[in-house]
Design a protein around this nucleic acid. Sequence first.
DNA 1: CTGTATTTTCAGGAAAGTCTGAAAATTGGA
DNA 2: TCCAATTTTCAGACTTTCCTGAAAATACAG
Lengths: 198, 198
Amino acid sequence: MNLPPICEAFVLHFGEMGSRWGINRTDGQIYAVLFVSERPLCADEMVERLGISRSNVSMGLKELQSWNLLRQRQIQGDRREFFTTPDDIYAIVRTLVDERKKREIDPTLSVLRELLMQTPGSDKDKHAQARLRDMHELIELLTNWYADVQKLETERLIQLLSLGSKVVKVLELKDRLFTLPGGKAGNLNRVANQNTND
Amino acid sequence: MNLPPICEAFVLHFGEMGSRWGINRTDGQIYAVLFVSERPLCADEMVERLGISRSNVSMGLKELQSWNLLRQRQIQGDRREFFTTPDDIYAIVRTLVDERKKREIDPTLSVLRELLMQTPGSDKDKHAQARLRDMHELIELLTNWYADVQKLETERLIQLLSLGSKVVKVLELKDRLFTLPGGKAGNLNRVANQNTND
DNA sequence: CTGTATTTTCAGGAAAGTCTGAAAATTGGA
DNA sequence: TCCAATTTTCAGACTTTCCTGAAAATACAG
């Protein structure tokens, strides 16, 4: 590997982590090397830096592209293709989550729905369906939350995440305020509900 | 595989998904078969249902136990050990996330912190550090959010997740209400801030 | 302590996944 | 069109991971 020390340490760790998440170690390293690079790289530069074969880089890039994780750039008067990762790390994570959702969560949801439609032929299958219903409900809760939150601008998202569980306190406050008796409170409560039900 | 149709379909899908997440397909199947089972199972029953070797089940159970994913039960007058998954699927997901965090996120954070402490020996390393700082910041944001939200009771958590991005609307409402001029508003604002700053 | 039921370990075979070099395909300039 | 630069493909070598049966270890009843 032909990289300055900090880059190399990161690339190695990232490849290692990738391989624990079902991502080919080398593909993880290719991504990492692009992620820390100050400018777009062509395939031969990755070969040079990672010390792997040209064909391995080619396949890795194809895989990463199929995950929408790369930007491709042409450089003036150069026939080679250059690659980068997006600058915005929030955008990167969104893409990653979107792709994994598309490839793994969505198919799982549809398998679960299909199995829940079937008529159980035994008590065991009946019980299995009850468990599957729980799982389906939870996955739906999480994906709906994600779909909703994903629409927010990064700015707002950060705000929301920073707040964490304190949100619950704000809700308690809201409940407390708007369940007070009296005309004014009733009026405010309508406003509040307008704001919380879409 | 010796399972009723719905169970079998689920077990196969779950094993398949597991293998995409860096979990051994067989271990995923073992988990799945316990998850849908109406009662605790002993190792030989898993052998029978999944059609794999006894030693494979033994290793799978060991692995799943190291992830804290199983409950172990003794049955009156039976020397064999019986296993189940927890009933509460929210608890299951919490455990899963906790373990992955412990094994993958935490070590990554410490690698990042370590690399950010180092003095860069080149411009490339300097730029790499800037990228690593972004990544570190984002991971911290997410893990802090998780650590915070994880403390909530399931009930409250569901409430919060169901709300999704509507939370932002509630916050806007709060801001609108408590930035109005007047003594009463000022007073309420203090209450609100007490409630939102821990 | 002995014997049986049960679980665990582990060497080595099987399967799956990864990597490479050589060759084919593609691209764009002349 | 041809040619050289570049990228892609893919068979087979190599590596890693997984799975098994046999043997060892453990647990416990008698």
